[in-house]
Nucleic acid binder design. Sequence first.
DNA 1: GCCGATCTGGACCGCACGGTCCAGTACGAT
DNA 2: ATCGTACTGGACCGTGCGGTCCAGATCGGC
Lengths: 219, 219
Amino acid sequence: MTTAATPVEAPRGLPGKRAAIMRAATHIFVTAGYERANLDTIATEAGVSKQTIYNHFGDKERLFIAVVDEARSGADRATEFDESLLDDPAALEQDLLVLGRQFLSTALDPQVSALRRLIIAEVAHHPALHRSCGDGEAGSAPKLLGFLTQRIALLAARGDLVAERPARAAAHFVSLLTYEGQQRSKYGTVAISPGEIDDICIDAADLFIRAYRSPATRS
Amino acid sequence: MTTAATPVEAPRGLPGKRAAIMRAATHIFVTAGYERANLDTIATEAGVSKQTIYNHFGDKERLFIAVVDEARSGADRATEFDESLLDDPAALEQDLLVLGRQFLSTALDPQVSALRRLIIAEVAHHPALHRSCGDGEAGSAPKLLGFLTQRIALLAARGDLVAERPARAAAHFVSLLTYEGQQRSKYGTVAISPGEIDDICIDAADLFIRAYRSPATRS
DNA sequence: GCCGATCTGGACCGCACGGTCCAGTACGAT
DNA sequence: ATCGTACTGGACCGTGCGGTCCAGATCGGC
């Protein structure tokens, strides 16, 4: 009753049905949580018979895993950073801003936040999720961390930055970026305006540069 | 079956029973989540009849709210900061370390982390929780933020720090502190050793000072 | 035009679990 | 001795829901 079960005409044929089920399941799981999610509701919203769901996914848990896996691999695919970023020391602040904005605009997306909360709530009860989410090597944050680490190492080697441990410096920047949003999206989805995202990025980049700038480049 | 339902001899008399129920309920809710938690199991583990639970709390949801409220007010009460901290500019790094250690040792406590995950998972489905957890004014992190903000403002007024926006600087320090642990405790409880906590605090304090130290005090 | 695979819709099963009821017990207060 | 209160334990009910079954429709391929 919390979620409307509006029947949607699903396109015929195998892939169409499957996609419709995934879409509906994602919606229901995210808004209701795993236990509260109801397969009849999902079937109705997908415009599909319940049996069809069982044909495709076997049972509720495997449907859930499929939903989470797809969402994660989708987020993964969408996270690519411009290789020309963080190369020119003169554009350091500018590039940090670009990276920050790109990262936060997806990380704070309501859909993504809701899914993150769902996963947080359910990992402990689904061993299969552990593999895909546990010791983070995938996901957008780790990707950003990797990219930053590599770039910071480069800039440090050139003497443009003072960062004896690039990975640590990268983590510091990411932590400055994510804190506010993490706090806000932790419980319920509180919208963050693009303006606020900008402020956060500006502050983070500013602080990062103040802390890691090479003395040689100081004004 | 995930959680052993070992009957425990509950102390006789009203307050004892109530406390036993709260203890058992906290345990079961935290490990199983709200939906999966079973009142029969809670009753058994509390060494109490199911009817007694209903006498005291009315229904499952109100029991849950009581558990969360108690945990939160308990955490609130346990969060007090030494008023002499962050006063002497010479001891700035030292004091930041002390604050960081105190904060992280409770914030990363497995119990506290588990409860945080539970709340994250359930706020959306229990309006009553929103009031007590939503727009954060209570809780240990906001308390630390408040304390830091006040102190940083003081130090900045004296010229010991350069921080035009003390609240922002405080948030920066807290974000540096919490990032790693937040990341680790987000899914499942991964133990963080005191040594690692120390490393995190040292790094955070170091970075904070590099970024906010007054030029006048630079070596 | 037939076959096989897919899908439908709805009846159906079994069970777990929140919640109720109640007869009986223990105990403190008067 | 009596009464009221809190507690027990276990039977009991209703229902929501995961999962199954099946008879019939639809459709693409040969």
